[in-house]
Design a protein around this nucleic acid. Structure first.
Lengths: 337, 337
DNA sequence: TATAAAAAAGTAACCGGTTACATTGAAAAT
DNA sequence: ATTTTCAATGTAACCGGTTACTTTTTTATA
């Protein structure tokens, strides 16, 4: 690997001059520029980014931190982040926090010297962790999908509770009253907000909240399958299932199908996310779209902006959008009674 | 962000001494060590990785390059790579090549100063590109899932042709002779090897190869769906579908279901990958497992080893493994005839 | 107690770049 | 012809660490 000194020797100029032609800064005579260019060419020279970063205190890199590479939105999120970063000629460093808040905190602090800004999509960190990060970090941080109590952070969030209410309305409008609920993790604000959505929707119609109709999943198909299977085995009555993401809804669908229960004729199912696979199951899953790609784009672009200019705190809020497909229909008992 | 100099001042020692306590190298008096530690503590000091990397020419980072973040194996691959890297306390830089070979080549060359080794999972680069990379790079490179003509590279590959033969045998053993084939991209070795597997299996039983039974997909559900729909609309006769990955197989399943064709009673389907979602469709998809996680683990661990010691070229080969589920059954006409 | 050996700490060069400032040389202005 | 101006380039300090080598201090040995 050749360095700037190799170029200097070959082109017979000083480091400063080479640096000038690399960066297109300052005045350089055309003939010199060419001399340097051809020297770089023949050496296959590429400036060392680490050295550049150290010297300029600019890394042209943005860090993306997720709690876990397993996360359901991870694919779309990463793809969009990569696209937005590349568009602005920024490099992307992606790290996960192994679902361990303290580890995740350390990871982010470590990133400080390696990035100009960080985008955080954390399921694991507590509000307190995020608070501390915000105070300690000298680089801007944009938080996705977390409703922080104060408007102190740059954030791109999603109206969790309203989204669940949207799903519930759709079910309730179709006459469903016994609605089994498969939640996600209950340690973080998202799960709590969503469960509130479920409870409040029920309350609004005067339907009693029934503990037995709620089971906790972990956002993957297996846990959705498992939860639904348990509902069935326990002989619990329900006419619809609401799951806190599409994967679990799809797992539930599988459990119902296995048990010989017709969807949506006997039981309706609704999910949230609008996962690309949802369209390919039979029946096609009705869901609420969580615009993770748009949110990511917004977040990354904001982060990139913040690399160069300090801005007042921005926060963007996104809303869910119902996508009606085939897995919900009016409840039978209502029709037949 | 405090630097080593801040620590020096606070602890009243030189840079060298601080460096020694950071790295645990050389001799440091216990009392001094404590002084320095507490200085670091109270400053919240973290060594600048960029500076360390520049000084030591060791980044403790391995680069993972994929052609496209969309890629079907990407999720599992990344998760496993992250796990293996973290286990060895290495950082991971992940980049994609936007499906553009020249861009991808540049990306990898750029990584040279930022990583100690790179793991490449490329669908896009030509053998020639890889050859050149190998010559130019001063850091080791491990190639996943590519059968390079020569054994010049460190590689972890998969027996593509044999895997397809395994799928075909399963179908042929079940009496299928009219087997529709949904391929992937045909520009790269994987696609070509797999199509050869299809052709050779047919030839071995003296079944004529029929162009009309082959359509090209792009490894996503939509293209599998589309291809299968076309087979149906064109009135082509087939008793089984083989797809070059599970996603496309699942797309095909959807197309058949929509058309009112029973799977597997009327048409059997087989995929390859053992995608986690395959188990949740109805019928559960029969497939050949492509052990991408194992392969990735192998590749990353090899890369990590190569950071510290030069080793002779290693290459590992993995084989497919049939996972029988519910989407294949003996062909009807055979039974009834 | 003097001296050799070992331990502890410091000095300064280096990694590969950038950049403020200084210097040179040639064209423009007087 | 002399001075001014400015384009072109060089010099050297700096970014934040590491490390070979040197110096100082401590401990062991005679």
């Amino acid at each position: 690997m050749s360095t700037i000194l190799d170029v200097c020797k070959l082109a017979n100029v000083s480091k400063a001059t080479v640096s000038r032609v690399i960066n297109g800064t300052g005045q350089v005579k055309e003939s010199t520029r060419e001399k340097v260019f051809s020297a770089m060419q023949s050496l296959g020279y590429r400036p060392n980014r680490l050295a550049q970063a150290l010297a300029t205190n600019k890394t042209h890199t943005i860090g993306l931190v997720v709690s876990d590479f397993d996360g359901i939105h991870f694919g779309l999120l990463l793809k969009q982040a990569a696209a937005s970063a590349e568009f602005s000629k920024k490099q992307l460093i992606v790290t996960d926090g192994h679902n361990d808040p303290d580890y995740e905190y350390e990871v982010i602090m470590q990133l400080e010297a390696q990035c100009d800004a960080v985008v955080l999509y954390s399921r694991t960190l507590t509000d307190d962790h995020i608070q501390r990060l915000h105070q300690q970090l000298t680089i801007p941080i944009v938080v996705i999908n977390r409703d922080l109590p104060e408007q102190l952070f740059h954030s791109v969030s999603f109206q969790q509770e309203d989204a669940i209410k949207l799903m519930m309305s759709h079910l309730l409008d179709n006459g469903h009253r016994q609605i089994a609920c498969i939640t996600g993790h209950m340690m973080n604000p998202t799960g709590i907000a969503r469960l509130n959505g479920y409870k409040h929707s029920l309350a609004q119609l005067g339907v009693n909240f029934d503990e037995k109709l709620v089971k906790h999943g972990v956002y993957d198909m297996k846990s959705g399958y498992q939860a639904c299977k348990e509902f069935i085995q326990e002989g619990i009555q329900f006419t619809a299932v609401i799951a806190f993401n599409d994967c679990m809804a799809l797992g539930a669908l599988r459990a119902l199908t296995e048990a010989g229960i017709q969807v949506p004729e006997q039981v309706s199912i609704i999910g949230i996310d609008n996962d690309p696979v949802s369209e390919f199951f039979t029946p096609r899953l009705t869901t609420v779209k969580l615009p993770i790609a748009d949110m990511t784009k917004q977040a990354v672009e904001l982060a990139i902006t913040l690399c160069d200019e300090t801005k007042a705190t921005h926060s963007y809020q996104y809303k869910g959008q119902l996508i009606e497909r085939e897995s919900v229909m009016p409840v039978r008992s209502v029709l037949s009674s």
